[in-house]
């Protein structure tokens, strides 16, 4: 059977992400109870897998690395139609950069057994690095195509995809197994359904820690991360701010006047 792995991440709800601020005094993150949700782009990755499964006999595993609470978003993927969920969760995994994250996920994918295709969202809404997909591919020693916006051919060992470029696209032919990172143009993700939620009752979420993965502690989490945050600074604006007051008409009038005086319109 065709085996698909989808890598997903729990991220702070992007709609409320502006509530996460750096405390200017302590220079640490103030989370302010922002709920964790499925990274929006990962829904497109899962949808790609589900659409493939709708046509062919396929099995979809969803893999996430995160704290125990991230089990929720794995469950959500199961409710959306994935067959099996894996949560890689361990204190030792905490503080991972993209490199250590990709390494851990790659180890999880290998432990899960043979696979044909790995789908990832192009980037996460909190990190937005785009590194995890290509780095997973490197650790798995398989090819990757990033930012795909169309799967042109997906029958057989060679797939053809369109990958987004500045003002255009690349047409790429790639031999599977391969990693694909997907953009929003690829598809329209389905919504959660009540019956999907019910079906997910019978689906399993497997939790693996560092023991199960059998990886050395120095290769994961903060210890396994080549890059790290050295300092956090708050940014100060260099502009003198003037808030225009008055009735709507007056504000518009004043604004036009100031822009004319500045010689910009």
């Amino acid at each position: 059977m065709f085996k698909i792995v989808v890598c997903v991440k729990a991220v702070p709800d992007p709609k409320e992400a502006c509530n996460i601020k750096i405390d200017p005094a302590t220079k640490t993150l103030m989370r302010c109870d922002v709920p964790m949700v499925l990274n929006p782009l990962d829904k497109y990755a899962l949808e790609a897998a589900l659409q493939f499964k709708a046509e062919f006999d396929a099995h979809i595993s969803v893999l996430s690395m995160g704290p125990p609470e991230a089990g929720n978003i794995v469950k959500e993927c199961l409710a959306l139609g994935a067959d099996r969920g894996f949560l890689l969760s361990d204190r030792a995994f905490a503080g991972a950069d993209a490199f250590a994250t990709a390494y851990t996920l790659a180890k999880g994918i290998e432990k899960n057994g043979p696979y044909d295709v790995v789908f990832c969202g192009m980037a996460s809404s909190d990190g937005s690095t785009e590194w995890v997909g290509p780095e997973i591919a490197t650790f798995l020693k398989i090819p990757v195509v990033t930012r795909i916006k169309e799967i042109v051919e997906y029958n057989g060992q060679w797939w053809t995809v369109k990958a987004e470029l500045e003002n255009g696209y690349r047409l790429v032919r790639v031999q599977i197994p391969a990693v694909f990172t997907v953009t929003r143009e690829l598809n329209t993700p389905r919504r959660l359904s009540f019956s999907g939620i019910i079906k997910a009752r019978k689906k399993e979420i497997t939790r693996w820690g560092i023991q199960e993965l059998g990886v050395p502690e120095e290769s994961v989490g903060l210890k396994g991360s080549p890059s790290m945050v050295s300092t956090i600074a708050s940014m100060d604006s260099r502009r003198k701010v003037e808030i225009l007051e008055g009735k709507r008409e007056e504000k518009a009038e004043q604004l036009v006047q100031r822009l004319v005086n500045a010689g910009v319109i």
């Binding site: 929720n72 469950k75 959500e76 919504r191 959660l192 359904s193 939620i197």
Partner: peptide, 18 residues
């Protein structure tokens, strides 16, 4: 329950989009 929270989410998505 976790499941009820998911039901709420499904209903929310439905309400907002449909």
């Amino acid at each position: 329950t976790e499941e009820q929270e998911m039901f709420r989410k499904a209903a929310q998505e439905f309400a907002e989009t449909q």
